[in-house]
Design a protein around this nucleic acid. Structure first.
Length: 509
RNA sequence: GAUCUCGUAGCUCAGCCGGUAGAGCACUUGACUUUUAAUCAAGGGGUCAUGGGUUCGAAUCCCAUCGAGAUCACCA
């Protein structure tokens, strides 16, 4: 244990000897918050020059002690609660117990440490330097902190000194990060607001929020390597879901007009600044709609999210050097037109060997297992994706890449699919859902053929899902959003770890 | 998985062409009844990530391991 930890444990013992419980069980009634007092405190100056306080005559606050400045027989503290920080003013005279000054001299001045949770009662006032503060009349220790917090200081201009910045420590001890870095707290508040805004929007649309299995015997609905686990009683392998799509569609088969699920997905792939092994998706499916309707709804939903998260209710977000406009309508661009626009290459008129030649000439990595559709996808990923900064619906994909999507109503070889790209990243993927069970079975069989050719991303056959389609699924539109990436976009973060409370880390030591 | 960079006090960092481990904040003691990055005075605190090697001598040079970040690959 470090010197400072030992000293705090000694203080803990001395408090107990003085009859003070460092971890009292009873509740502490809070009646005010730091930010509210600072924003709303009022006083008037009388004719004789004295000040008259107009509100917050009696307040009770609780929070962490984050700074302490002794000034003889007075003391200034900073109390941090869930809303922010406020200064406390304590005088020895106010906290005497009869003739006994031990409480102020020993308990408050010696045995209290930065990071301790305290509860105080008193009245608001403005110091002669102009800071709204609370004059403390009663003081109670609520919970003793045994480890020293990193002390981050700010000056009057807002410059930060000695910030707690080491990413490893911040992620491993997010509780410390959240305590000393108020900006981090704001990111997660925004994340919560983003989810809430989407949920409200979907509820207003009349969709039903549902939960589907995370443990699945067949990992379907997407192409990714799964986490595998084992059920002891059933003595069978189970997989953590890589997607929930096929279960949500079964619910549409079952007669719900619309369902949505916010849920964790798990993919056993590499980790980097945009990938965490578990991540959050929003998927929703609506009967009797198609992907054109879904584009309209997506525009409405994201505009609403942008307005909800912007302090001024605006629809733009700064992302690096770019200003993203979330008010619709968004550009709708077919995949073939997008490639033609950014590369001049007409993929529609090209055969597989032409595309292979193009890839080789442009240093795009390909392998023998890739068919024409996969080659087109690679060209898009290398030459187009990063330039789609403003929200753009990329529509009408080759059928081979989209085994769960209905064939295009007028364009042979394509499907009714769109992906939404913002700031060069995919944030949503949507289809007019394939509900023809015979076509779906053939698509699965094509996937099996691709798998045989060496495509590790090919999708597995799901017989029960096919059975459900044979009972008939109404025409349906569906979409999936990456909530983490959307949060990154709206909070200006470039690492997924900054929008996850507890990103995946290797074990310590 | 590959490559590069990093790991020194509770925190932020300096020291790194080898020669006894440093600063600021935090902490301890003292002064101060309106301070605010409080101030002033004195003081304590280190297995320099871990393990090897080179050397008379390693925080410093070399190797390995662990952890983190960045870039790439795979994916969303």
């Amino acid at each position: 244990m470090t010197e400072q930890e030992l000293l705090r444990r000694e203080s803990l013992q001395k408090l107990r000897e003085l009859g003070i419980d460092p971890y009292p069980p009873e509740m502490f009634e809070v009646s005010a918050f730091a930010a509210d007092i600072i924003a709303n405190y009022q006083e008037e100056v009388l004719e004789d020059g004295t000040k008259n306080r107009l509100n917050y005559h009696s307040v009770a606050l609780a929070g962490r002690l984050m700074a302490s400045r002794e000034a003889g027989k007075a003391l200034f503290m900073n109390l941090q609660d869930s809303t922010g920080r406020i200064q406390l003013y304590l005088r020895r005279d106010d906290l005497m117990q009869g003739e006994d000054g031990t409480f102020f001299d020993v308990v408050i001045k010696k045995l209290l440490d930065l990071g301790d949770y305290i509860g105080i009662k008193g009245f608001a006032f403005r110091t002669k330097t102009g800071e709204v503060s609370v004059h403390v009349q009663e003081f109670k220790l609520l919970s003793k902190s045994l480890r020293p917090l990193p002390i981050v200081k700010r000056d009057a201009e807002g410059n930060i000194f000695d910030a707690f910045t080491d990413p490893e420590q911040r992620y491993r001890m997010r509780y410390v990060d959240l305590t000393v870095n108020p900006d981090v707290r704001q990111i997660f508040i925004k994340r919560s607001k983003l989810v809430r805004t989407m949920r409200n929007f979907l509820d207003e649309l009349g969709l039903l929020e549902v939960e589907t299995p995370i443990l699945q015997a067949i990992h379907g609905g997407a192409a990714a390597r799964p986490f595998k686990t084992h059920h002891n009683t059933l003595d069978m392998p189970l997989f953590l879901r890589i997607a929930n799509e096929l279960y949500l569609k079964r619910l549409i088969v079952g007669g719900f007009d619309g369902v949505y699920e916010f849920g964790k997905m798990f993919r056993n792939e590499g980790m980097d600044r945009t990938h965490n092994p578990e991540f959050t998706a929003l998927e929703f499916y609506v009967a009797y709609k198609d992907y054109n309707w879904m584009m309209d709804v997506t525009e409405q939903m994201l505009e609403r999210v942008a307005r909800a998260l912007d302090e001024n209710g605006g629809t733009t977000v700064q992302a690096g050097e770019n200003v993203i406009e979330f008010a619709g309508p968004y550009t709708r661009l077919t995949m073939f037109d997008a490639i033609k626009q950014y590369t001049g290459l007409d993929v529609e008129a090209s055969d597989e060997s032409t595309l292979r030649t193009y890839c080789r000439e442009n240093h795009i990595e390909i392998d023998a297992s890739m068919g024409k559709a996969k080659l087109i996808d690679e060209i898009f990923g290398e030459k187009v994706e990063e330039f789609l900064i403003q929200p753009t619906f990329l529509i009408d994909y080759p059928v081979e890449m989209s085994p769960l999507t209905k064939k295009h109503r007028s364009k042979p070889g394509l499907v009714e699919r769109f992906e939404l790209f913002i700031n060069g990243k995919e944030v949503a993927n949507a289809y007019t859902e394939l509900n023809d069970p015979i076509d779906q079975r053939e698509r699965f069989e094509e996937q099996l053929a691709l798998a045989a050719r060496g495509d590790e991303e090919a999708m597995a056959m799901d017989d029960d899902f096919l059975r459900s389609l044979e009972y008939a699924m109404p025409p349906t539109a569906g979409i999936g959003f990456g909530i983490d990436r959307l949060t990154m976009l709206f909070t200006g973060q470039t690492s997924i770890q900054e929008v996850l409370f507890f990103p995946q880390m290797r074990p310590e030591k």
